Simulated scan of single mutants.
Amino acid sequence: MANLVQNRNTRTLALPCASYVDPVAAAVRIFKGAMVALDGSGNAIPASPTAAAMRGCALDDGADNSTGAAGAASVKTKKGVFLFNQTGLDRTDIETEVSVIDDNTVGGAGALKAGILKDITSEGAWVEIL
Rank of each mutant, 00 (worst) to 15 (best):
I101K: 11
G88P: 06
C57W: 08
A27C: 01
N7D: 10
A44N: 05
P23E: 03
A52R: 06
L83S: 00
E95F: 15
K113S: 12
Y20M: 13
K76S: 12
Y20G: 05
T50R: 05
G68P: 01
A37H: 08
P46E: 01
D39I: 02
E95A: 14
G110Q: 03
G124Q: 06
V5M: 15
D39C: 07
G115A: 12
N43R: 06
P16T: 01
S19W: 09
D39M: 13
V28C: 10
L89G: 03
V127R: 06
T12C: 10
E97A: 00
D119P: 07
I120L: 04
P16D: 09
S74M: 03
I129H: 05
R55V: 01
G33I: 02
G40L: 13
D60S: 09
K32N: 12
F84S: 04
T92H: 11
M1I: 11
D64I: 06
Q86T: 04
T10D: 11
A25C: 08
T67F: 09
A51R: 02
F31T: 06
F84P: 02
S99M: 06
V36Q: 06
N65R: 09
G110V: 03
T96Y: 14
A125Q: 07
Y20D: 15
E128Y: 15
R8E: 10
M35E: 03
K79D: 04
S74Q: 15
S41F: 13
K32G: 14
E95T: 15
G40D: 15
S74H: 13
V81A: 11
A18C: 11
Q86N: 11
G68F: 03
E95V: 13
K76M: 10
A44W: 05
L13T: 01
L117R: 05
P49F: 00
R91D: 01
I120R: 05
V98Q: 02
G80C: 01
G80W: 00
L83I: 04
T12I: 13
T96P: 07
V98N: 05
I101P: 06
S19N: 14
V81L: 02
W126P: 00
A14Q: 12
T96M: 12
T77E: 04
S19C: 09
N85G: 03
T121D: 08
G68E: 05
L4F: 14
A70I: 05
L4Y: 09
R8I: 10
F82I: 02
P16Y: 06
V75P: 09
L89M: 03
K32R: 09
S99H: 08
K32C: 08
V21C: 11
G108C: 00
D102V: 11
D90S: 10
D102E: 11
L83N: 02
L38P: 04
N43P: 06
G115H: 03
Y20K: 03
L59T: 07
K78L: 14
A72D: 15
V24T: 14
I116D: 01
R11M: 08
R29G: 07
T105H: 07
G62E: 01
I120T: 02
R29Q: 10
T96D: 08
C17Y: 10
D22E: 13
S66N: 03
A73G: 01
V106P: 09
L130S: 11
P49N: 01
G40S: 15
D22M: 12
I101A: 07
R8V: 14
G68S: 02
R55A: 04
A37T: 09
T12E: 15
N104L: 10
S122A: 14
A73M: 15
C17H: 12
R91Q: 12
K118Q: 08
G56N: 05
